[in-house]
Design a protein around this nucleic acid. Structure first.
Lengths: 231, 231
DNA sequence: ATATAGTGTGTATTTTCTACACTAAGTAAT
DNA sequence: ATTACTTAGTGTAGAAAATACACACTATAT
């Protein structure tokens, strides 16, 4: 609820935890700041929301400016509003996570002006981050870890055609545990949200695996039904 | 990520979806606005975040000013940042839900100055709301509906001592479906997070039911373990 | 004593979860 | 062509959890 609209001396920003999956590792995109405060520190990509744009729009814009990619799966997950999270004044930040298909090609459109570079870094190997960005990252990671248990967000991270082993590896890195191959396949195939293709993996020096596609139509039907607690 | 700190012409508010359970109905607290815009409309309780307070603190403060209650279960669930959600300018609002033990006594501390009254209204019987508050409510309701499936938030809504039937009724109104009594009890008691008391319901004109308490210690141990996807 | 209204309980069936190990298929080297 | 190598692909049995379902018990009020 809001009544008067006093001018308010605060700033609004977006920060993004951008996930990618490559070489069997879960990575996030970090930028190196080239301005104070936290000059030369690693940080989550983010920027200030403009006066005349929605926060969702700002999140998409920031992602686009950094990666050149549009139409990416993004989801707002938490807003961080402690008084002293920014050393220069009050900054409230809305955090989003995004998922990007890396497809082996890690090249990104080059970068806005506040960062000297952007790189993909494995979530197991993160440096210290600027501001409260470690907290933001943790919360985002936790969020997708929970979410993957009941929603097939994994498919946003994989190439369009993938093998079951790749899918399993992705689950394993997100959940941080080994899964049983047979049980995993049984469960996944039972969902009925995978389309088996007539195609096989190429360029591997061993038996090639079948490729699969994610069937979005069937997924939507399946996951509309509510969860847990039957009659 | 934030660099410069331009003065920014926007306002930050908190809106709260405050749930209570009474007479077998799930209710939320609404206020009647006495100022423009939306004068005389029903709205979610909310207010502007102050310069020097965290958003969590603001949420607690607003709840306190409205109800006189502290130490209430509150959780941030979404931030609404469309450009035109407020007719008089840019207002970004962080939404929280809260859960209150009504205990039959619905009286609240009287109210801040922007509202002429506050009342509990059944979620099945909501009027039109100011701003985008219907959207905010829906999202909050959805949130607790999901959450109750894996976390015992229901206990925040019940009196300290409650019967299994009351607990079941609460699940039923939140999930909006009938549950089987025997299965429900079996499941709940199996969790081992309920303490059976030596006490019975009083003042009923039929066989009195046993009272139970929620065992927070046991709960914490139980729900630390992660969910889904075994080996 | 009787009517009433809600409490409290058990079992059989189905479904889902878990544990577990070998053969099949393709590639690469000789 | 044979062999060695590497990953793909598959089934079953037991345990645990979820579901469906109906009646006797108890306290109160009259």
């Amino acid at each position: 609820m809001e009544t008067l609209l006093p001018k308010f001396d605060s700033v609004f920003s977006i920060d993004c935890v951008i996930f990618g999956f490559d070489e069997g590792e879960l990575k996030i995109l970090l930028i190196e700041r080239n301005e104070e405060p936290f000059k030369d520190w690693w940080a989550l990509p983010g920027y200030i929301v403009e006066q005349e744009e929605s926060i969702d729009h700002a999140a998409e814009r920031i992602l686009y400016e950094l990666t050149g990619l549009r139409d990416i799966y993004m989801d707002q997950f938490y807003t961080f509003g402690d008084v002293n999270r920014h050393p220069q004044g009050r900054v409230i930040t809305v955090a989003y996570y995004a998922m990007i298909r890396l497809n082996g090609s890690k090249e990104l459109k080059p970068i806005s002006n506040y960062a000297s570079k952007a790189v993909w870094i494995s979530v197991n190997d993160l440096p210290k981050l600027a501001f409260d960005h470690e907290k933001i990252f943790s919360r985002g990671f936790e969020k997708i870890r929970n979410k993957i248990s009941y929603q097939p967000i994994a498919f946003e991270l994989l190439p369009e055609k993938f093998t079951l082993t790749q899918l399993q590896q992705l689950y394993e890195v997100i959940l941080n545990k080994k899964l049983d191959k047979r049980n995993f396949r049984k469960k996944m195939l039972n969902y009925g949200i995978l389309k088996e293709l007539d195609e096989k993996q190429k360029g591997v020096s061993y038996r090639a695996a079948k490729l699969y596609k994610f069937d979005k139509r069937k997924y939507t039907r399946l996951f509309q039904k509510e969860l847990t607690f039957g009659k």
